[in-house]
Design a protein around this nucleic acid. Structure first.
Lengths: 198, 198
DNA sequence: ACCTGAACACCGTTCAAGT
DNA sequence: ACCTGAACACCGTTCAAGT
């Protein structure tokens, strides 16, 4: 009766993605199996193949959704401030918080083996993210516009995030990692101002 | 006749690890299966359990060996120079080169799910690595000895490595990534000198 | 001690069949 | 169109049995 258990209307795809996301968040990326996803969506182990060519194809869809959500989250976080340093800090915190809120999803987003070029929406979200970061860094007025400064900032934030998620740093709490992120941004911008890149 | 095909002498364990490393390096971490490892070592699918409690246990051994090798490689790279900046740069290049030389192994070393505390050799190599990095950074005379400077440097190098391996940066060649690493180190040390951490 | 073969409960994927 | 059940070739792991 209720439309949610009738997949002939085209909502199985999103139900599968939702189940997959839940599985990943709760049990980690290695617990993500097509058969379990199908089970949770209440369909046969085979039904997912109507919507995804393969497990990798579902993972790619999951990664695309995650990247789009991360981008939206960063946009949202930077929207309220006008001061360039504050905006960059807000973006970095959004990045870190996104990763901490669902570590396995962060892994799926970044480390999946699928061919990215085969997923235009993924590439689009990636391109937009890099562009946004470039703008945020350029607004600091710390370097000529070669893009290297943006990569340095991104790598620092990403490194702190990865090492934080893996419990490699002495402080692993959200607060401590945000503080480390702030230090990284301050140090990098100070360094870029003092010693502009070639 | 030849001792290599007689595992009653205690060399099966290392033969298994060697097969596992080869598998990981050639086909990626997801191709690492206990059964295939056994096949390559020429034993039944069950023989590995004489030497490893589980697949995770073998992965932990692999990760430990990798970390020890990385540490040795960094020690070796820094041994020839005396200038602090040169030594730090050599260490960073060794880190990057280690990752690029076998990306899946780098992943196993950093992202495996095993309980690290259950593997003292792993913890020892980790502790020694952090200590070494701390010394290298302290020699730059850029910060008070809180360890934060070391974490910032490590995160930057690690971030460049991860993003480079994942083809996220515009330049992905060894040369380009080493150059980006050099920029990161120069920028961070300049920033730390200009604006010491609280 | 060290190794083997059979067995169990899983996978991803394919295929013929049902509505 | 969308879904199902049977089947295939894999996994990791356990167990009884062989030397």
């Amino acid at each position: 009766m209720i439309s949610v258990d009738r997949y002939h209307h085209g909502n199985l795809r999103s139900a599968l993605l939702q189940a997959a996301l839940h599985l990943v968040g709760k049990f980690g990326a290695e617990a993500l199996t097509l058969r379990e996803v199908a089970r949770r969506a209440g369909v046969s182990h085979n039904a997912p193949y109507r919507h995804f060519k393969s497990k990798e194809d579902l993972v790619a869809a999951l990664a695309t959704e995650a990247l789009e959500e991360l981008l939206a989250s960063i946009r949202n976080a930077t929207a309220t401030a006008t001061d360039p340093a504050t905006r960059l800090r807000a973006a970095a915190h959004a990045y870190l918080d996104f990763a901490l809120s669902n570590p396995p999803r962060f892994g799926i987003m970044f480390r999946s083996a699928f061919d990215r070029d085969a997923y235009p929406a993924y590439v689009a979200a990636y391109t937009d993210s890099v562009t946004l970061l470039g703008e945020l860094v350029r607004a600091q007025e710390v370097a000529t516009d070669t893009g290297v400064a943006g990569e340095l900032v991104w790598a620092s934030i990403h490194g702190i995030t990865e090492l934080g998620l893996g419990k490699w740093l002495r402080g692993g709490s959200r607060k401590e990692l945000e503080s480390l992120t702030d230090s990284a941004l301050e140090t990098l911008t100070a360094g870029l101002r003092k010693q502009p890149l070639a």
